[in-house]
Design a protein around this nucleic acid. Sequence first.
DNA 1: GCGTTAATTAAGCGCATGATTAATTTTTTC
DNA 2: GAAAAAATTAATCATGCGCTTAATTAACGC
Lengths: 222, 222
Amino acid sequence: MASTLTNIDSPHDAAESLLDAAEAEFSENGFHGTTTRAIAAGAGVNAALLHYYFGSKEQLFARVVERRAAEINGRRRALLSELLAQTAAPTLEALLEAFLRPTIEFGHDATRDGQRYARLLVHVAAGTDERSRRLTAQNYNDIAQEFIARFVDAVPKLEQKDAVRGYLFTVSIALSLMGRTGRAGDLSDGACHDDDVNQAIEEAKIFAAAGIRALATRRKDD
Amino acid sequence: MASTLTNIDSPHDAAESLLDAAEAEFSENGFHGTTTRAIAAGAGVNAALLHYYFGSKEQLFARVVERRAAEINGRRRALLSELLAQTAAPTLEALLEAFLRPTIEFGHDATRDGQRYARLLVHVAAGTDERSRRLTAQNYNDIAQEFIARFVDAVPKLEQKDAVRGYLFTVSIALSLMGRTGRAGDLSDGACHDDDVNQAIEEAKIFAAAGIRALATRRKDD
DNA sequence: GCGTTAATTAAGCGCATGATTAATTTTTTC
DNA sequence: GAAAAAATTAATCATGCGCTTAATTAACGC
C-alpha cells in the first residue's frame, strides 16, 4: 500500500504530513503535552519516520514554528514594501496594519489550519521557558527590529526603548486576539467576540496606536 | 477517599511544601513538563503524599493557581475599595493602578518567589488549552467583571464590549511584562528592560489607558 | 536487469510517568 | 496509656514515553 488516502498529485509526502500533524498536536497540547506517537498517528505515518526525517521531537517542533514564521514574516515584509513604495513616511496605523494583518488574518482563517497556527504562536510567543524564548528570538527578532525602526520614524518623540516596549505590547494584544479562547464572549454575554477578522485587526490597531503614541508623549522627567 | 477532613488551618507542612514546590516546578516547565516526582523531591517529601493531600497532579495544579489568584485578587479588591472610599468616580488611570499593581508588583518581587507566580500566571492566562481556559475563568472572571464595570463608569462613551476588549488587552500587556523573558533587553541592547517595577506599571498604565480611551472615542459608524 | 540508496515497517529497548497499595510511624483523643 | 485517626513510607503497578534497530520494500541511475 504505497498511498492509502493521500493523493499522489499533491506534494504531501510523509515529512509534510508529519509537519501538519505536529502543528495540530503541538498547538492543542503544547510541546510536553504532545506525544510523537500522536503526531505519527495524526499524519497516518509510521512513528519511526518522525525521527528519520526530523531527528527528534525537539527539532520537529522547531521546524513547525519556522515554517509558519517564515510565511507570516514574508507577508509582513511584502506589505511593508508595498507601503514604503507608496509613501516614504507611512503612518503608525499603516505600519501596524502591515504588521498585524498577516498574523491575525491567518489566525482567523476559516480552515482549521489558521486556528492551529495561531495557538502554536501563542504557545511559543507567550511561553517563558527556554525553548519558547529561543524560538521566538530566532524567528521574530529580525522582523521586530524592522518594525521597531519604522515606529521610531513614524512617531514624533518616540524613543527606541519606548518603541521596543510598544512593539512588545502590540504583539501581546495580537496574541490575545489570536488565542480565541472565547473569553471575550464569556465576559460580555456574547456582545464581544473574536469572530470578525477586520474588526479584530481594527481594534488592535486603534488600541496599539494610541498606546504607542501615549508612550512617546508622556512626560520624560522621572 | 480524598482527604475530606483535612482542613488547611492546621500547619500541614507537607501539603504547603508541596504547593510551594509545585508552583516552582509548574511555573518553570508547565503542567505536562512537570513530574510529580520532581515536585515531591523539591518539597523534600514522599511522592505518595502528593496524591494523599491533593488527589492528583491535576487537582494540585488547580490549587496552586487558586492560592495565588485569591491573594492577588484580594489585594486588587482592597485597593479598589480604598479608591472608591476616596472618590465615587475614580479615573481610568487610578483603576488601572489598582488592577495592575498587585500582579506586576508581585511578579517582580524576588523575595516572595514572585517570578514563579508570574510565570505560572502567564502559563495559565495565556494558555489556550482547556485546562488553562477553565482555571482562568474560575479564578479571574469575577474580578474581570468588577473592573470592566468600573471602566465603563470611568470612561465616557465606553461601551461594554469595548470595555471587555480593553480589559483583555490590558491583561495581555500585563502578562507580557510579567513573563520577564529578557526579550525587551535583547531588542534594545539593554536600553529597555523589565527590572524597574514602578516603571513597568507606569508604562502599562499609560499604554492601556490610551488604548481604552481610543476604543471609546473611535467612530462607531463603520 | 542490477546495484545502490532512500523510504518505510514492525518490534522493542530502557526508562520515566502518574498513581496505588499495604505496612509503618506519628499524632490525636479520651 | 491504649485505641483511633492521621501522616508518612517503601515498593510497585501498568502504561506510555522518546527513540533505536534491523529487516523489508520502493525508487532510481545505468
